[in-house]
Computed example of a mutant assay.
Amino acid sequence: MTGLPGEPMGPIGPTSAEVSGAPCWVNLMTHDIDAAERFYGAVLGWSFRPTRLGPAFRVAEGEGVPVAGIGAQAGTFSVAVAWTPYFAVADADAAVSRIRERTGTVAVGPVRFEGAGRGVLAADPQGAVFGLWEGRVFADWLTAPRAAPAWVELRTRDAFAAAVFYGEVLLWATGESGCCDVSYERDRIVLRHDGRVVARLDGGPAQEASAEPVRRPHWHVHFRVAELDASVAAAAAHGGDTVAVDPSPGPEGRFATLRDPEGALFDVWEPPATPP
């Protein structure tokens, strides 16, 4: 629940109501924040700044733009070390009610962060963890061309059931100003905000009780990098490992799935030289 988008560490942009339903932040809960800084600084080229919440909470910046939060509180909140996306909502209380009505789980919140907004940590019916944010969001987070996450992706067993759940909770495709549009493309569900792809929902062989995190339903974050091979090598040099890597460029560029030293999964993406 730390390093949320209302932290006054960058230009504050629209309210969550104006980007309703869109991902507006990603956050890592870890045990060793200094080690996480070294790892992600090397792999993604980030720098880090403190927040007003104390030394256990940091905001990561890429090219001067706040891109993610990192907190050394995984043990305190008894949560797994993992990346979690936060979605913008106009009313956190109403969204929490919609989660519970649809058999999701609310673990924390709404928690008020004075002068910033309110946050919620929840899980969908298939067990994927996500967050909600009501308040101001960073102006550049959704539009930064290189520094912010490229998109977030839900890897789950039943993408259509998940789309119904998230669509009803986050009010996707309502036609109201600022909401997200949903389409079905290439066997996956695609979420767009203002014409830009911001999330995907993929169904597949996810297993609820699997001991391997990559196979459990979860939200997966894709980060842009300039050189994929350099990021993969930096991950190995700083205690991470590679779960999968594309050997050659495809029409959408190259991808690698990495695991940080504490087990958090994420993707790095090298865009194609010529956009598809």
Rank of each mutant, 00 (worst) to 15 (best):
G204C: 13
G204I: 01
P205T: 09
P205D: 15
A206C: 02
A206R: 12
A206M: 10
A206N: 06
A206L: 02
A206H: 06
A206P: 01
Q207E: 14
Q207R: 13
E208M: 07
E208A: 10
E208N: 05
A209D: 15
S210H: 04
A211P: 11
A211S: 13
A211R: 14
A211Q: 06
A211H: 09
E212F: 13
P213N: 06
P213K: 10
P213M: 09
P213T: 10
P213G: 13
P213L: 07
P213Y: 09
V214R: 13
V214F: 05
V214P: 03
R215N: 09
R215M: 03
R215Y: 01
R215K: 11
R216P: 04
R216M: 02
R216T: 02
R216S: 02
R216H: 01
P217H: 08
H218D: 12
H218Q: 13
H218W: 01
W219V: 05
W219C: 09
W219A: 12
H220V: 08
V221Y: 08
V221A: 10
V221S: 12
H222L: 11
H222A: 14
H222G: 07
H222V: 14
F223H: 15
F223A: 07
F223P: 03
R224H: 10
V225I: 03
V225W: 04
V225C: 05
A226L: 12
A226S: 13
E227T: 08
E227H: 11
L228W: 11
L228G: 07
L228I: 13
D229Y: 10
D229C: 06
D229V: 11
D229E: 15
S231R: 07
S231H: 02
S231T: 00
V232Q: 09
V232M: 14
V232K: 14
V232T: 08
V232S: 10
V232C: 08
A233C: 03
A233Y: 01
A233D: 04
A233G: 02
A233I: 00
A234T: 01
A234F: 00
A236R: 12
A236W: 05
A237D: 12
A237P: 04
H238V: 00
H238R: 12
G239M: 04
G239P: 03
G239R: 11
D241A: 07
T242V: 15
T242N: 04
V243T: 02
A244Y: 06
A244K: 08
V245F: 00
D246M: 06
D246L: 08
D246C: 03
D246P: 04
P247D: 15
P247W: 11
P247T: 14
P247K: 10
S248F: 09
P249C: 05
P249S: 09
P249V: 01
P249R: 06
P249N: 07
G250E: 15
P251Q: 04
P251F: 00
G253R: 09
G253H: 08
R254K: 14
R254S: 15
R254T: 01
R254F: 01
F255P: 02
F255S: 08
F255E: 12
F255K: 06
F255L: 15
A256S: 14
T257F: 00
R259F: 00
R259W: 00
